[in-house]
Amino acid sequence: CSKGALTYVTTANIYNEVGDWEDLFAPGLAGCQGCNTELLMRHTLRRVGPDTVLATPPGCVPGMGSVGFNGTTGTKVPVFHPLLTNTAAMLAGVKRQFKRMGRDVTALAIAGDGGASDVGFQSLSGAAERGEQMLFMVVDNEGYMNTGMQRSSCTPYGAWTSTTPIGAGCSAGQPAQGKTQDAKNLPLLMVNHRCAYVATASTAYMEDLYAKLDRAIEASKTGFAYVHVYSPCTTGWRFPSDQNMEVARKAVETNFVMLWEFTPSEGLRFSRSVDDPLPVTDYLKAMGRFRHLSPEQIEHIQGKVVENSKFIQRFSEQAHGG
C-alpha cells in the first residue's frame, strides 16, 4: 500500500486500505457545502466498487448531479434515476437480468428517507419480502431536503420543516410547534421483513460504517441488504456546515440514534453501547430546527429516546440474552 497515514491512529486504517481506490463520483458534485450525503455516497461507492449499477431516486443524491444534467454524468458507474416510488423494483429488474446472464453485479440504491419511507415504501417492502439481491442504502436526513426541507415520515417529533412550521396558531388550535408526530422507525420495519442484513450507521463512526458496508455487500449477494444512515443536513437542520460530524456524533451519544446491525441468524446486536447516554438536549441544541422547543416537547423527545432505546434493547436481548 502506497498510503502513508499513521497506522497507530485507527481512523487512518480506512485511508490506508481504500485511499488508493477511485472515488467513483465526478470530482465536482453540487452538494451543499459540508453535505453529509455527499460524504456518505462517495465513501459508499468507493467501497462497493465499479462492478455496480447505482440507483438514486429523486432527492439530494441525484439533485447534486450524480445522474448528471443535459448529457453529462456525475458518476463513473452506470447510474439512473428511478422514480421516487420504484427504486427497489427497478433495481431488482436490473439485478435479476444480470443474475440470469451469470454476471456478478452489485445492485446498489442510495435513496433518501422520503423516497424510502413514504412514497417508495411499497416497492421497498415488496423487494425486501421477495429477497431481491441488492444493497439498499437510505440516507436519512429526516425530510425532503432537496425540494426545500419538507416533512417526511422520518422527520422527528418537534422538528421545524417547511411544512411543519412554527406559527402563532389559529382560532381552531394550538400554536404550531414543528412536527407533531414521532418519526417512523424504518430500519426496524426492515428488520421485520427478515432481510438478509439490516444496519443503522452514522458517518461520524466511519469504521463502523465501513464494517457494515462490507457485511451488507456480502449479504446483497444472497438477499436484501438494508443500511440506514443518519445523515445530518447542514442546510435543512440549520447548523454551520463545519459542525456536521459533531451533530452526527451527538445524535449517537444521546441515543437519539442507535447503531446496530441485524441478521436473521444472529438477531439484533448493538455496534456501540447505548448505556449512559448524554441528555438529548446536547443534541437538540446543536441545531436550529429544534430552537423553538418547549420544555414539554423536550421532555417528550427525551421520553421517546428512552422508549426507543428500551424497545430496541429488547430486540437485542431476545436475540442474545433470552
Binding site: V67, G68, F69, G71, T73, T75, V77, P78, V79, H81
Partner: peptide, 9 residues
C-alpha cells in the same frame, strides 16, 4: 458500459 440513464434534461 457506464452511462447515466435518464439524467435531468
Amino acid at each position: 458500459k457506464p452511462m447515466a440513464v435518464d439524467p435531468l434534461t
